[in-house]
């Protein structure tokens, strides 16, 4: 857009940058060369493949919505308040980011499983979470939530509170300020966070297989289907892997943060 010359970067930096890009892109190219193209359509349109894709999109959408509902308040509290132990709390909230997803799945199992911390209470209430689509959404939300919290908290901190101060001086109550000023101003950050969360949820495997199980149309999302097909029908697995890559790329391209910017 602008014709301004950017500050110069050292020439040598292109080499490791290109190396890094190759490292990421080459496997994607490799996987597309492995696809059995003549049968591609048949491979990805089988009942089990379609069920897995639909389930993946549905659960990822639901868990992204859940991430927004829970993550926006969390990021706001972390960015706009200070209390003892806040640093520790932030680290704990972001823990799923660095935990192996399988550990997350185990943690969820020990919380919501039949013999888990809340298992008895849930059983009394007649709620069964294990082996249900709810469990898939919970597992995805667990691993994707930090992405939303992290990017939104960053946006809130960068934005500062000057506009909120003005809005309050105009007589707006905190809820009005939050709804009409804070949220619209961090919308690009929120959108970026939601896209990241969706992408993370879409790729979620470890926590799901540990916590939710694997049943066609109920809990077997695309990554689980790919892992399963790898055993019986490797061609289908590769075709589905490519579908997952394409869906992820599309989502990131459509809602990429620069576009959402003002």
């Amino acid at each position: 857009m602008t014709h301004q010359r950017a500050a110069a970067i050292p020439r040598w930096i292109y080499l490791p940058a290109a190396l890094g890009a190759t490292f990421v892109l080459l496997p994607l190219i490799a996987i597309s060369t492995k696809v059995d193209w003549p049968h591609f359509a048949a491979l990805i349109s089988s009942d089990s493949s379609r069920a897995a894709l639909v389930l993946s999109l549905k659960t990822s959408g639901a868990s992204t919505a859940l991430c927004v509902l829970l993550g926006v308040p969390m990021a706001t509290v972390l960015a706009r308040t200070s209390f003892p132990g806040q640093g520790l709390l932030r680290s704990l909230v972001l823990l799923p980011l660095v935990l192996p997803p399988v550990v997350g799945g185990l943690a969820l199992l020990y919380t919501f499983g039949r013999n888990g911390l809340l298992g008895h209470t849930l059983a009394v209430l007649g709620i069964r979470i294990a082996f249900s689509t709810i469990a898939v959404i919970m597992a995805q939300t667990f691993v994707a939530l930090p992405f939303l919290v992290l990017s939104l908290e960053g946006a809130l901190r960068t934005g500062g509170q000057r506009y909120e101060v003005v809005a309050a001086s105009l007589g707006a109550k905190p809820t009005t300020v939050f709804r009409r000023i804070t949220l619209p101003l961090v919308m690009p950050g929120l959108l970026a966070g939601a896209v990241l969360s969706f992408a993370r949820a879409l790729g979620e495997f470890g926590a799901t297989i540990t916590f939710a199980g694997s049943l066609q149309g109920v809990t077997r999302t695309l990554p689980l289907e790919i892992y399963l097909q790898r055993e019986g029908d490797p061609d289908a697995a590769v075709a589905l892997a490519l579908v997952l890559v394409v869906v992820a790329v599309l989502i990131i391209a459509i809602a990429r943060p620069e576009r959402a910017g003002r």
């Binding site: 199992l109 039949r114 013999n115 199980g213 694997s214 809990t219 055993e231």
Partner: peptide
Amino acid sequence: PVSEEQSVKDVLAKVTSGD
């Protein structure tokens, strides 16, 4: 079945956890 697992280990894990 409520779940069709990837391996016997996964089946066993679901049973030992009590779910």
